[in-house]
Structures are given as C-alpha cells and as structure tokens.
Amino acid sequence: MAEKAPRRPPPMKRVLVVEPHPQVRAALADLVDDEPGCELVAAVTTIADALSLVSEVRPDVVLVDTDTPNWEPQQLGKRFGEILPEVLLVFLSAATEPHRECPESSTKTLSMLKTVAPDFLRSLSS
C-alpha cells in the first residue's frame, strides 16, 4: 500500500498593517505575529509608507485603518492594484457600521470592525 505524502501546511499569509496610532499599530502587529498562519511583513503609519513598501514586501493582505490620514478612498484600491493586483485590502473601522470604502477598486476589498480583526486573521489560516 502506498503511503500518502505528508500534508503540507497552507502557506503563510503575508500581512502589512497600516495604522496611524502607535498603540493600535502595535496591537495589530502583535495579533498578526500571534496568528500561526500569518507573517507580519511590515507595520507602517501612512499609506505613502505602505505604497513604497508593497512591491518589496509583497503582502497577501493589507490591513488599513480607515482613520489613516491623507488617503483617498476612491484611489487606494486602484493604486495598490496597479502594484500588486492579487492583494486583499481590508479596511478596519471603529465605526459601528463599516462600509466598503473603495467600490471601484481593482483589488479585492473587505470592510470590518477592528474588533473582528482577530477572527479574520484566524480565518486566513483555516
């Protein structure tokens, strides 16, 4: 009887965090670090920082706080999509009813409350 090849674990999801508030950025980075199926590739303060790094660190997922200053909601998905079309943009909000911020995005986008970010990260590796 032939032996089955060992099952490979799913590849790690590479995550980039964009969050202007230092304590929240650190907490999100810790959440990513603590999730076995995720790898933190960078945690930055601004969209400009994220865009300058995205082609180098090649994230699968970008967590973006909707409170991040100087971001253009209608252009953000397009700009990330031009650099890395397969990236998933996840907009995090403290609002009680988050909504899709980039309806014309060329990338996949999700919007969610910050409080469900841990569940979302766990879902990446399941």
Rank of each mutant, 00 (worst) to 15 (best):
M1L: 08
E3H: 15
K4P: 00
R8I: 06
P9F: 13
P10T: 12
P11E: 04
M12W: 10
M12P: 01
V15E: 08
E19T: 04
H21A: 14
Q23H: 14
L28I: 14
D30P: 06
L31R: 14
V32S: 11
E39F: 11
A43P: 03
T46S: 15
I47Y: 07
A48Q: 13
L51T: 01
L51M: 12
S52D: 12
L53A: 06
L53C: 06
V54H: 02
S55K: 14
V57R: 14
D60M: 07
V61M: 02
V62K: 01
L63S: 05
T66I: 15
T66C: 02
P69G: 12
P69S: 08
W71E: 02
E72P: 00
Q74F: 06
R79T: 01
R79Q: 12
F80G: 00
F80P: 04
G81W: 03
V87H: 05
F91R: 06
F91K: 05
A94I: 04
P98C: 08
H99D: 13
R100A: 12
P103N: 10
P103C: 05
P103K: 07
E104D: 13
K108H: 14
T109H: 02
S111I: 05
M112F: 07
M112E: 01
M112Y: 07
V116E: 03
A117D: 08
D119H: 06
S126Q: 07
